[in-house]
Deep mutational scan, measured.
Amino acid sequence: LVRYRTISKIPQITLNFVDLKGDPFLASPTSDREIIAPKIKERTHNVTEKVTQVLSLGADVLPEYKLQAPRIHRWTILHYSPFKAVWDWLILLLVIYTAVFTPYSAAFLLKETEEGPPATECGYACQPLAVVDLIVDIMFIVDILINFRTTYVNANEEVVSHPGRIAVHYFKGWFLIDMVAAIPFDLLIFGSGSEELIGLLKTARLLRLVRVARKLDRYSEYGAAVLFLLMCTFALIAHWLACIWYAIGNMEQPHMDSRIGWLHNLGDQIGKPYNSSGLGGPSIKDKYVTALYFTFSSLTSVGFGNVSPNTNSEKIFSICVMLIGSLMYASIFGNVSAIIQRLYSGTARYHTQMLRVREFIRFHQIPNPLRQRLEEYFQHAWSYTNGIDMNAVLKGFPECLQADICLHLNRSLLQHCKPFRGATKGCLRALAMKFKTTHAPPGDTLVHAGDLLTALYFISRGSIEILRGDVVVAILGKNDIFGEPLNLYARPGKSNGDVRALTYCDLHKIHR
């Protein structure tokens, strides 16, 4: 019993810090008490220290592992850092350059016999395009090294910054494609005289377009951006097909006994025919423009016929181009109408809503002055909100995010209106959640004399007048207030005048 009563005193000691020596009952000389009392004092002292730490809000209350900052290894790049964003855009520009100039170089340097010394005699450094290609190869190699040090988000939505895990993730992902696209074939085969082989191998750079397509997928929600990307894709495919079309004609031209190829026909049409040795002929500019003209006309199913396939190889390629053109029509131009419709969806919704308003007016036989006010209010409210119901949009977000959005939407009023000066951010967040926005066209009466005042109004834009009878008592403008002081009276009061809008007004109100 003594032991039980001794232990039962522990909660009292913990909360009230009572010393055991003052209790005459606990001072009985028993061996059990002498053993338990020192333990009680020690526990009391420890609990006292913990309570003191909690009340003082000291940093040592938290466990040590929670006080440590997340460790980022040296030379690790955050995937959302500004440097990584700028670097990704730079790589994107280099990939676009590669997609345009690599097929052009591979096709127009394929057994090209233009006048001038061969590239091997001039030297590697004197070729501007080769120098640019070398810079692109170096940048792609540097990009691989950067990807080995860039964080990523795993399946659990955690940012991984450990170098080993980053390397394994990159090896399992895009490393092989990036490595093949970054191989400097110019340096590996330079001086061997195989410019045709170098041009063909350099087309491996186009593998990076797969990554670019995935990154550009984030802009699919913007109709104008999608339309622009589709047109660029169409032009890029036409450019690639033009390079292939020229390569076919250029390879067949020296081996044909009869002059029936499209390059021969082009030379005869523009007065620059090929001679018996295969030299001469149109310039590279004429060849490229004509090839691009043929691919565009074939892809769009126009086909004027002034550039036509004559050999079997050219006919087979033309059939493939027609098939590609039909697929592009289905996948690209078939979506253009939907994209344009999405661009004008706001206008369509406006006309639909206006039609419903006019049908309501016609069905209920609203008189002319009231009908005009109804239409003007709808037009003004639509121009202010673009038909978007803010309350319906915010309803799907958590309250903390709703408060931040409301604070942002009402920031101008909260910053410049005098009653809100000096208020804490928590108070402003709470008030912003209570605001209701209303609009009024010129001549609209917001409050009639004798109406119950259940709200306090803040003028965000425009001006109003307060009338008693036919006498203008006051004219209020931006950041002015009218209405009933909230919670100042037990019952809502009545208006002693009319409140009429002089201009288009936007008002925020808080109800009782």
Rank of each mutant, 00 (worst) to 15 (best):
L176W: 11
G278S: 04
S105E: 04
L197C: 11
H169F: 05
R342C: 04
W262H: 01
E196I: 11
V95W: 01
S192G: 10
L229E: 01
R211K: 07
P103N: 01
A181M: 01
T98K: 03
I146C: 07
Y274I: 03
Q365R: 11
H364I: 01
W174I: 01
D133C: 01
K172S: 04
I141F: 11
R74Y: 05
D217S: 05
Q379Y: 07
R211S: 01
M390Y: 07
N391Q: 14
R421S: 08
L187S: 13
G164V: 13
V357F: 15
L207N: 04
E158Q: 12
P398Q: 01
H408Q: 01
G199N: 09
L266N: 01
P128K: 05
P118C: 04
F171T: 05
H162V: 11
A119C: 04
T311S: 01
C427H: 03
G303L: 01
M433Q: 07
R373L: 03
V393R: 02
I96Y: 01
H162S: 13
L266V: 01
L229Y: 05
N312E: 01
A99Y: 01
P273L: 01
F304E: 01
I244L: 04
A348G: 07
T424P: 09
E376H: 15
I284D: 03
P442C: 03
G280C: 01
K215H: 01
L446N: 01
Y65K: 08
H239C: 01
D257P: 14
G116N: 03
G173L: 01
Q353V: 03
A432Y: 03
R342M: 07
G164A: 13
L263F: 01
I135E: 01
E157Y: 04
I96R: 01
L428S: 04
R358E: 03
V95L: 08
T233I: 13
A348F: 14
R421H: 08
G334C: 03
V180P: 08
A106E: 01
F175V: 01
A167P: 01
V131W: 02
R165L: 07
H439K: 01
I77T: 03
V447S: 02
I332H: 03
T76M: 08
H416G: 11
M256D: 15
A403S: 06
K434Y: 04
I138C: 03
A291I: 01
L413N: 01
A291E: 01
Y246G: 01
F175G: 05
S277W: 01
A291K: 01
I183C: 05
L279N: 06
A181L: 01
F190A: 14
G305E: 01
A403K: 10
F378Y: 11
L409V: 08
Y288R: 01
I332L: 08
R218A: 08
V447R: 02
H79A: 01
A432V: 08
K84G: 01
N154D: 12
L67P: 05
H448V: 08
I339L: 10
F108P: 01
V307L: 01
N306G: 01
Y170G: 01
N410H: 13
L216G: 04
F435D: 03
M433P: 04
L279H: 14
V86H: 01
G305F: 01
R208S: 13
G303E: 01
T385Q: 15
M179K: 01
A204H: 01
V307C: 01
F378N: 05
N275Q: 03
P367L: 01
E114Y: 12
A242I: 01
W87V: 01
V357P: 02
Q372P: 01
W87E: 01
L129D: 03
Q341L: 09
P273I: 01
L414S: 01
Y104R: 01
H439A: 06
P369G: 08
Y80R: 05
M256W: 03
P163W: 12
Y65I: 07
G261V: 01
C122K: 01
S345P: 05
T120G: 10
P309M: 01
M256K: 15
A432G: 06
L370N: 01
T445W: 06
A130F: 01
I189D: 13
A106C: 01
Q269A: 11
M139V: 10
P117C: 04
P309L: 01
R429G: 03
V336M: 10
E195L: 13
R371K: 14
Q402P: 02
S326R: 03
I339P: 01
L201E: 01
G396C: 15
V136K: 07
C232T: 05
C232D: 01
L188V: 13
I361G: 03
S301N: 04
L229D: 01
L299T: 01
K84H: 01
K84R: 01
P442G: 03
H73D: 05
I166R: 01
E195M: 14
R342I: 05
P70M: 06
H73M: 04
F333L: 12
A119V: 09
E375F: 09
M251L: 11
M433L: 10
V100H: 01
I388D: 13
N275S: 09
D143S: 01
T150F: 01
I405S: 02
V307H: 01
Y246R: 01
C122L: 01
R208D: 01
I198W: 11
N312F: 01
D404W: 01
A167D: 01
M390N: 06
I366H: 01
E157V: 13
T300K: 01
G303D: 01
V226N: 09
G278V: 01
G267K: 01
R218Y: 08
H448T: 10
F294W: 01
R208C: 12
H448I: 04
A235Q: 01
L90E: 01
D137Y: 01
G422K: 12
F234N: 01
D186P: 15
L343G: 08
P254S: 15
S220N: 09
F101I: 06
P184Q: 03
S313V: 14
L134P: 01
L414A: 02
G191Y: 03
S283L: 01
S326Y: 05
T290S: 01
T290Q: 01
G334N: 01
L323R: 01
N312M: 01
L129M: 11
T113Y: 04
F420G: 02
A106V: 09
Y246T: 01
E157P: 03
V447N: 03
I144V: 11
V357A: 03
K285H: 04
L201P: 03
S331T: 11
V168I: 08
S81W: 07
T102Y: 08
D133P: 01
K215Q: 04
Y124F: 15
S192H: 14
T347F: 01
P70D: 15
V226F: 05
A430H: 15
D404S: 03
D143I: 01
H264T: 03
L207M: 13
I166N: 01
V95E: 01
C406A: 14
H79G: 01
H264N: 14
R259S: 15
G278Y: 01
R214A: 11
S383W: 03
V131F: 07
R362E: 04
N275W: 01
T150A: 03
Q379D: 15
M179I: 11
S161H: 12
H364K: 01
P163T: 05
G346F: 03
M390L: 08
T438I: 11
G267H: 03
A225W: 15
L413I: 10
I388F: 15
L90T: 07
F190I: 12
A213S: 04
F171A: 09
N154H: 14
P367R: 08
G280S: 04
A225L: 03
L263W: 01
G223R: 04
H264Y: 12
M328W: 03
A130L: 01
M179D: 01
L401I: 12
A432E: 03
G123M: 01
Y384Q: 13
L229A: 05
E114V: 13
H364L: 04
L279P: 04
T311Q: 01
F360I: 02
N156A: 13
I248K: 01
D143G: 01
G334Q: 08
P282S: 03
V212Q: 01
G164C: 09
